[in-house]
């Protein structure tokens, strides 16, 4: 059912892969449940080597582990066919079995040798979601995952303080309201900290370690 290869109807002659705004789908994928989960982007069938072409230079192979268990040789053939085409080559694995460890290990190795990036999805929805985001983000600059500078005060304070282990968002709020500023928090004594609600010994120790211990030793 999740098999990427279809057995039934003969393939309709593919359209010329074209406009660039659609995901181009290998006709082999017809019948794959993932197709229904690709939303918010255009889809068209086309004659390509990969299963899905989500960008000018990005090709995706799709593999369900269930299928892989039955036909372990299939993916190797596909990878071989892929040759050196595409800049970014992705193997989208649908993890739909419980004994996934060995299969994923083996596939990881194969992919690293063949310069393929592995993505693991855990449901058809997720797989479809990956495909559509890959297409949508084709020309998106990586700002979303880059270091950001313009964040508001509270957000920075929260990330800064929660970087200390055991400190959670509520604690940040407690610290902020009790001491006012970051500098004042740094100056707080262990006793003051210990008497805040929700602050145990370990947490206080961690906070004090971060602020008061030397940042590096003189070895």
């Amino acid at each position: 059912m999740s098999a990427p290869a279809t057995t039934n109807t003969p393939v309709v002659p593919p359209v010329i892969p074209g406009t660039g705004t659609n995901i181009i789908i290998n006709p082999l994928q017809r019948g794959n449940l993932v197709l229904d989960c690709i939303r918010n982007v255009g889809k068209e069938f086309g004659d390509i080597i990969a299963d899905y072409q989500v960008g000018r230079t990005t090709g995706v192979l799709f593999l369900s582990l269930k299928y892989h268990r039955l036909h372990p040789e299939y993916i190797h053939i596909r990878i071989e066919k892929l040759g050196h085409s595409y800049m970014l080559r992705i193997l989208l694995i649908l993890c739909d079995i419980t004994e996934h460890r060995d299969a994923i290990r083996e596939l990881t190795k194969v992919c690293i040798i063949n310069n393929i990036t592995v993505l693991v999805a855990f449901s058809f929805e997720e797989a479809g979601h990956y495909l559509s985001t890959l297409k949508q983000f084709e020309h998106k600059p990586p700002d979303m995952i880059k270091e950001r500078v313009d964040k508001d005060y509270n957000a920075i304070l929260r990330t800064a303080l929660t970087s200390i282990s055991k400190v959670n968002k509520t604690d940040v709020e407690t610290l902020r309201t009790s001491f006012g500023s970051f500098a004042n928090i740094a100056k707080a004594t262990p006793d003051q900290l210990r008497n805040l609600p929700g602050f145990g010994q370990v947490k206080v120790k961690n906070i004090k370690n971060a602020f008061d211990k030397p940042v590096r030793n003189n070895a």
């Binding site: 960008g55 990005t58 800049m87 970014l88 992705i90 694995i93 996934h100 460890r101 994923i104 290990r105 990881t108 190795k109 992919c111 690293i112 310069n115 393929i116 990036t117 592995v118 993505l119 693991v120 997720e126 979601h129 990956y130 985001t133 890959l134 983000f137 084709e138 998106k140 990586p142 979303m144 995952i145």
Partner: peptide
């Protein structure tokens, strides 16, 4: 996480990803 992973993959075509279900699996890989 998923969109971010997708964006990361697009930004660094050479970066490979290992998905490991546990530290044991990591050691094996």
């Amino acid at each position: 996480l998923q969109p971010k992973i997708a964006l990361l993959v697009l930004s660094f075509p050479r970066v490979r990803i290992i998905w490991s279900s546990s530290p044991y699996a990591t050691a094996e890989i």
